[in-house]
Amino acid sequence: MNDFKLDNEPKITSGFKAPEGYFDTFPDKILLQLPKQESKVISIFSSKRTWYLAAAAVMVLLLSVPLYNQYVLNQETVDATVLEDYLAYNTSVSEDEIVNLLNKEDLEKMKVDFNLQDKDIEEALESNANLEQYILD
């Protein structure tokens, strides 16, 4: 040991060791000593109840899809011309009855619809073979 040089010696370690598993339990020891946090944050996905509710909601949605489709099919809109034809050919409603059902306002509207131009009237009269007869009469 007379010419002891630290750098010439093989590395001398401290010789201390930690008990087995010391660092495995260390984090838990520390966590126990930490002051409790004011408000604990609870994740909405942590509770079992939430999962049951979510599953139930999904089931309800899945089951309601066929029902909804059925409902939509039943609500199919009737084509206007089909309806008109049906009313024209398949009902026993007489024209008088329809006229009675119409009020003044409806009749005003119809007047607008039948707003005939003079030209149209002329054409109609010209194409009528009995026109001359009418005039003579």
Partner: peptide, 13 residues
């Protein structure tokens, strides 16, 4: 118990 150093380790300490 937790010091298992040899003579030279002990001497250094």
């Amino acid at each position: 118990t937790y010091f298992d150093g040899n003579e030279i380790q002990f001497k250094l300490q």
